[in-house]
Computed example of a mutant assay.
Amino acid sequence: MDTKILGRWAVALLAAALCGGGHAQILIGQTAGFTGPVAAGVKENTDGARLWLDAVNARGGIAGRQVELVSLDDKFDPKLANENAQKLADRGAIALFLTRGTPPTEAVLPVLLANHMPLVGPSTGAMVLHQPVNRYVFNVRATYQREAEKAIEHLHTLGIQRIALVHADDSFGRDGLEGANKGFAQAKLKPTAVLKADRSKPDYSQLVPPILASDAQAVLWIGSANAVAEGVRALRAAKTSVRVVTLSNNASAGFVKALGEHARGVIVTQVYPSERSYAYTMVQEATELAKAKKMVLSPAILEGYAAAKVLVEGLKRAGKNPTRETLQAALEGMKRFDLGGLEVSFGPEDHTGLEFADLSIVDREGRFAR
């Protein structure tokens, strides 16, 4: 059954998924912003996850049981994310999967703890999900702090000395700010300007002038895809060619589309190899599955695909009738699992999984070039 985005029919559809028409299923729950400012990236993440889940189910599932992904739309609202997570827990989901964004993911943590339920592959690099280790959170990507630090390092190696910083005024933005500050310290630089932006409705009339006044050569903009795309348009409307760098939460085809004519030259950090790096068997495999569905890989699709591979491997190791407890134990005992050129390892003191970080630039065709 295809992934469902449940709105007003949530209760009926979720009940149907749980009943499953007589077929034994393993229920996995997802809450993410299928509408709202991160919708494009969420769709691509989920499409990537479905590539692998559908392939596994087509081969008979796990010990003869289908993996059923039921998705609820939280509109990127932390309160709704918490409610959705509890709804999924109450109805028997053995894990949450592929949440999106720092504030919504933070909002589901109490639900994980109360229900002893693991979360696999949150699509956020928030340090709070890495340190201190949360026994129920299993990350499959590097931290935002590492990305932001690497972005500043990269700009410095290009000879860029004057760098401004814009960050969302929330836990995600502050997390990125901390990483950027590490990069500035290592490069022995100070930002020309540090500006907070409202998470939902940035005021570009208050953001662009200070960037211009600081004579910045580049700006690291930490925010949602819509917010950053609008920021780039506002900068270009002000007739400035200042370079714009953003983080991997915006590594999606939807972000490039939102940038429109201003996409070329925007730098985006990445937490997976290029979707055209065929030296990685994971990329080869995902490419073939995507072709069958007439999809074109993007970094966001690849992230969802990798998260699904880790989830499925955990389920396989959790026994014929996986539970929340056996899945949590199986994931924590996972050592050097080969995604297809990248290894994932977890342990009681480390739930990061992967630390790969790189940079890309949007080329004239709208692709992320490395």
Rank of each mutant, 00 (worst) to 15 (best):
K201G: 03
P110M: 11
S360M: 12
R264S: 08
Q186L: 06
A369G: 08
G179R: 00
A258K: 09
V108I: 15
L98P: 02
T99D: 14
E149G: 01
N139F: 11
E325R: 03
A225M: 05
I163G: 01
R135I: 13
A306P: 02
G60Y: 08
L331H: 09
K4I: 14
L18V: 14
A93W: 00
Q25I: 12
V42L: 06
R59T: 13
A225G: 10
T281W: 04
D175P: 07
A307G: 09
H130K: 08
G265P: 04
D54R: 13
D90A: 15
R336F: 12
P37F: 05
G341N: 08
G304E: 02
K293L: 11
A229W: 06
I160M: 06
Y204K: 13
I222E: 00
N139L: 10
T143N: 01
G254R: 05
A258M: 11
V245T: 15
D47K: 12
V344M: 07
E68H: 10
N250W: 06
A187P: 06
T352G: 15
G121D: 14
R59N: 15
P210H: 00
A357E: 10
T287Q: 14
L53N: 04
R146N: 05
G48V: 11
A151T: 01
Q270C: 07
D169M: 12
T143H: 10
P104R: 07
W52V: 08
A168C: 02
E147S: 07
D338P: 06
A187I: 00
K293A: 14
A197P: 04
A329F: 06
S224Y: 10
A81C: 07
V208D: 09
H23R: 14
V244R: 01
T323P: 01
V38S: 05
A253R: 11
I361R: 08
K190P: 02
H156K: 09
E275T: 13
L158V: 01
E285K: 13
G64T: 11
L69Q: 03
D203Y: 01
R367S: 10
L69C: 06
L165S: 04
V362I: 13
T323F: 08
N321L: 15
P273H: 09
N321T: 15
G48C: 03
I28N: 09
L18H: 11
M295V: 11
A229P: 09
L235M: 07
E44P: 00
V310I: 03
G29L: 08
Y272L: 13
R100D: 15
K291Q: 15
D358Y: 13
P104M: 09
S277D: 15
A218T: 02
G159P: 09
S205E: 09
I267N: 00
S123F: 10
D170R: 06
A225F: 01
L165D: 00
L289H: 09
A151W: 00
R243K: 13
S274P: 05
S252W: 05
A10W: 10
S241T: 14
T246A: 00
M295D: 10
I152M: 03
P78I: 03
G48S: 05
G21M: 10
V137Q: 06
